[in-house]
Write a protein that binds this DNA or RNA. Structure first.
Lengths: 348, 348
DNA sequence: TTGTATGCGTTATCAT
DNA sequence: ATGATAACGCATACAA
């Protein structure tokens, strides 16, 4: 009776064969009597044998492990990215080690070293912002590294996967235009965020294609409900004829909707609203029911996982890949406004 | 010039010593000439040597790795718990392997096996609900397992860490009572959630201590903004004199605030509001500024990590540990109502 | 068809 | 103060 975990030697002894035979039986390689194979397998099962991955790693030179280094903690966007990565690599029996650098370069270096020391086969760096950052410094290591929902500087040297914010902005705008709206405004986050600028640019592009201009220009503020409310009140004061608004975040859109309703206008009958993030707790709530641009982070994560697996297999990849956003249509931008009016008593 | 990663043999050869000496030099054990130690260390640094953790694990019989098995994906509550765990175990050089069972028992079993096979030193099972679940089935393995933000059935056999929802409910209620409010109502999530029932019980306890009863009883609905709005409208219709409301979730509280304002009442002057979750994007938004009960999940996660480390070191632990919630006071329940009124024009 | 021997990278033990 | 050797658990090349 062995003390610690059951080893293949224990199984072999119990089944009355050599460790080599046991190994072959369990891995299904080589030729052997069916009876032997079955006997070994039954013994392994009975003893609860689990091959020691550390030993296998040592032998194969691969750990079947990848590191996920979050630069700025686990936020709202980490979940989908992690799920996507897991979908891509889980089937390959690859485990994921996570670490959270919390926007601290020292921690980042420390964790990068730790991951390299654990001989991970590859590293995915992820961050909530898409603004460029210096690449991971891994002195003398050839571990493949890719960036998901993060971008490095100078551009083009590493593989970076980011949502196509500009296309997302176009998507939202084209949707509003397709509804027949012509006086469109834009409320979004701080200008220092690349994502905010890109979304605004996408909107301007789509408007330009239709020969239109942005009513009131791109309004930058906080990524907050309060800003959506205040900003929308101001917009309505300056441009009372606005019939559609695209917001750079669902929280902003939610605030904007409150302001629109409070001004006596109806959503979407008078003003159609489109948000960004497709943040379900808010956007999918029946009382908000917000049409929103979804960054499709789960597919992005999956692509990251697949790409890293390919790089591990020796296929070098670089460059910036922008993954398409998708539009999720809800009541805040439905064509037939009369179908949906949660506050019939208001302003009546 | 070695091909793959730099090994200790490479360092030893380059420094002109044996692998054993190199190992001792790098680990600071044994006696040796200072010059030798420094020379080896410098060589290791120059070559970018990183000790292979798989080899060390094999030797030590410990991997310094723990598994984090999420039962129902990475949601809003996973982040804080993960951060807490990392804080507890990161200093001990312990890495965390994550896997997401997505509420699928098959996946859960599969991942549990995978973690055991990787010889993790321990496993933390986490889930967004605190309703009891069967314990992790790990045939013939003695890996310590603990449950964070999750609970097993029958109770008492495993170590389970859960927020003290009942105490949270008392906390919120006592705060409202301290403000002088006496006609308190409760809007919360579906009754099938243990957390909802516990929070309501906590509220009733606190009210009973003050010789009071719940106005309108505990109102159960969805964990959604829409329910908070509808539920609050109904409450105000039936009990127009309500002067305080405790909501089982911030989203519900947010909806309730909208309803209160729309009814022409002011928050907190006429009705004080307390939420649950302290969900920053909503609660901390200046336009909502919601007093809320925080489940302190980061400390909970840290305790989970520390407890698991203790169990790994041979200290057995079982039982249900309820970790205290904390109250975060914001404008929705401030005593001096006149200090804060975001919509002065309303109802004027 | 099955057994023996070797090595993956590291460290502890024993020898020098 | 340093070197040689063995061992951790597994899989494979080679031998039988």
């Amino acid at each position: 009776m062995p003390s610690g975990p059951v080893t293949i030697a224990d199984v072999a002894a119990e089944a009355g064969v050599s460790p080599a035979t046991a190994s072959r039986a369990l891995n299904g390689v080589g030729r052997m009597r069916v009876e032997t194979r079955e006997r070994v397998r039954a013994t392994a099962r009975r003893l609860g044998f689990r091959p020691n991955e550390a030993a296998r790693s040592l032998l194969r030179g691969r750990t079947f492990t990848m590191g996920l280094l979050t630069t700025d903690s686990y936020g709202r966007f980490s979940g989908p990215v992690m799920r996507g990565i897991e979908d891509a690599v889980g089937a390959e029996q690859v485990a994921i080690i996570v670490c959270d650098a919390r926007s601290d370069p020292i921690r980042e270096r420390y964790y990068a070293e730790a991951l390299a020391s654990r001989q991970v086969d590859g590293i995915i760096v992820t961050g909530r912002r898409v603004d460029p950052r210096p690449p991971l410094a891994l002195h003398g290591s050839h571990v493949p590294v890719i960036y998901a929902f993060a971008q490095t500087e100078p551009p083009g040297r590493d593989l970076c996967l980011i949502p196509d914010d500009r296309q997302g902005g176009r998507l939202a705008t084209e949707h509003l235009l397709a509804l027949g709206r012509r006086r469109l405004a834009h409320l979004t986050g701080p200008e220092r965020f690349l994502a905010a600028r890109e979304r605004a640019d996408g909107m301007r592009e789509a408007l330009a294609s239709a020969g239109l201009e942005l009513a009131g220009g791109a309004r930058h503020g906080a990524w907050a409900l309060g800003w959506g409310y205040e900003g929308m009140l101001a917009l309505l004061r300056e441009h009372p004829d606005i019939d559609g608004v695209f917001c750079g975040a669902d929280l902003v859109a939610h605030g904007a909707i409150e302001a629109i309703r409070e001004s006596g206008r109806r959503v979407p009958a008078d003003v159609a609203v489109v948000g960004f993030d497709n943040w379900e707790p808010i956007a999918a709530d029946p009382r908000v029911s917000l049409t929103s641009v979804d960054m499709a982070l789960e597919p992005l994560g999956m692509l990251a996982g697949q790409s890293l697996l390919a790089m591990i297999d020796g296929d070098p990849r670089t460059g910036i890949v922008r993954t398409p956003c998708e539009l999720v249509v809800r009541a805040s931008s439905i064509a037939l406004a009369s179908h949906w009016e949660p506050r019939p008593k208001e302003g009546a």
